[in-house]
């Protein structure tokens, strides 16, 4: 109820100003607007230093934004837009790298490292437990107890 009242108050407040301004790219469907924002952040401006097309003021970024808007308006899906761009500007145009034997390492290497480290820690614990010299350990324990 309270939220409803706040909404009403907001609508009243907003309507008290002369007239509302319009968004540059308008969508009836909020999901499409969301998709548009997402795609323009994921696509890379091909001639800029390192910017997505949402952030860049370059003409090409402007054109690509307009193109994304047109394609979405035509009912194209997310994948279709990305394929459209990649067929013209190559894999470079998307900040999402393609999964190929060469790029697979992006995901594999961190995982291998973590798994390897876990195995290594568990293994070395076992070895240490076997090898430990009881006398030296007792001495170390005494020293450490002082902590």
């Amino acid at each position: 109820m309270k939220r409803f009242l706040i909404c009403v108050a907001l609508i009243l407040a907003a309507s008290s100003f002369t007239h509302a301004s319009e968004e540059k790219y308008q969508f009836e469907d909020p999901a499409k607007r969301e998709l548009f924002l997402e795609l323009t952040q994921e696509l890379r401006c091909p001639m800029c230093q390192n910017q997505n097309i949402a952030d860049s003021d370059a003409m090409i970024a402007n054109d690509l934004r307009r193109k994304v808007y047109q394609l979405l308006k035509q009912g194209k899906s997310r994948e279709e837009v990305v394929v459209y761009m990649k067929s013209r500007y190559g894999d470079f145009v998307s900040y999402k790298p393609p999964v190929t034997p060469a790029t697979l390492w992006l995901w594999l290497l961190p995982v291998i490292f973590v798994l390897g480290a876990v195995v290594f820690i568990v293994q070395s614990r076992k070895k240490a437990a076997v090898k430990a010299d009881p006398e030296a350990l007792a001495k170390a324990e005494v020293l450490l107890e002082k902590d």
Partner: peptide, 22 residues
């Protein structure tokens, strides 16, 4: 990897890729 793989990818002759926020 995300920073340097595009360079390696290109030097290996596999073409330009971008690795970014996603």
């Amino acid at each position: 990897l995300g920073t340097l793989l595009p360079l390696v990818h290109k030097e290996l002759g596999l073409g330009s890729i971008s690795i970014g926020a996603p």
